[in-house]
Computed example of a mutant assay.
Amino acid sequence: MISVAIVDDQPLIRAGLRMIVDSQPDLVLAGEGGDGAEAVELARAHRPEVMLLDVRMPGTDGIAAVPGILAASGATRVLMLTTFDLDEYVYGALRAGAAGFLLKDAGPEQILAAIHAIAAGDVLLAPTLTRRLVEQYVARPPRASADGPLTPSPTGSERCWSRSPTA
């Protein structure tokens, strides 16, 4: 059984997420809350394996609550949920220690897959976010190393990266 806590300031969203969790025989609801302070208390009291956590809430928001959740229960993995597709939320959540980030327009199957992935120790980002983050990363110029530039060198039918022999 995977224990799941739900924290969102909107009761309708919590009810929908609860229905998704309750629909699965291998998931059990560990509790619910409406803000970041309640999320930290849920983590301390119930130690859920996965916490579904809204980004924007009154009082303590989800991103600000993540370090407290992790400190209260080192075993809880946080899956951030939001309606706002903003890079600063993704970066903030990951820097705070969240294990995943989904938009609230994700379907029940995506949410369930994310819960299972996060519980298994994986990190999961919404596909649209992953694509955008990879595009941004690839567009950045490569950084030079103190050991010299990175140059490709063939190994069999594959290519791997090694230090330039002339550096």
Rank of each mutant, 00 (worst) to 15 (best):
D8P: 04
R14M: 11
G36W: 09
L12N: 09
D35G: 08
D9K: 03
G31C: 12
Q24S: 11
A15I: 03
G36I: 14
D22H: 14
R14H: 10
A37M: 06
S23R: 04
D22W: 10
I20V: 15
A37W: 01
R14A: 12
A37K: 08
I2M: 08
A39T: 09
Q10E: 10
I20D: 03
L27N: 05
D22M: 14
P25I: 09
V4L: 00
E32S: 09
D26R: 14
G16K: 00
L12A: 12
P11R: 01
P25G: 12
Q10H: 14
V7Y: 07
I20Q: 03
D26M: 13
G34R: 12
V28F: 10
A37P: 01
G33W: 03
R18E: 15
S3M: 01
V7L: 07
A5N: 02
S3C: 01
A5D: 01
G33K: 02
G33Y: 00
G34A: 15
A39Q: 10
D35Q: 07
P11T: 00
P25T: 14
R14L: 10
L12P: 02
L27K: 05
D9W: 04
G31D: 14
E38K: 08
Q10R: 06
A15F: 08
P25D: 15
A15G: 10
A30R: 13
D35V: 04
D8V: 03
V28A: 15
L27Q: 07
R18A: 14
R14Q: 13
G16F: 02
I13C: 03
D35C: 09
D35T: 05
M19K: 10
V21R: 02
Q24L: 11
E32A: 08
G31N: 12
Q24Y: 03
G34K: 11
D8T: 03
Q10T: 11
A15T: 12
R18I: 07
R18C: 10
P11M: 02
P11L: 02
D8W: 04
D8I: 01
L12F: 10
I2K: 05
D22P: 11
R18T: 14
D22Y: 11
I13D: 02
I2C: 06
P25H: 13
V4R: 00
Q10P: 00
L29A: 05
A39Y: 08
S23F: 06
G33C: 06
E32C: 05
V7G: 06
V28Q: 15
V4A: 00
L17D: 08
G16N: 02
G36P: 13
G31S: 13
L27Y: 06
G36D: 12
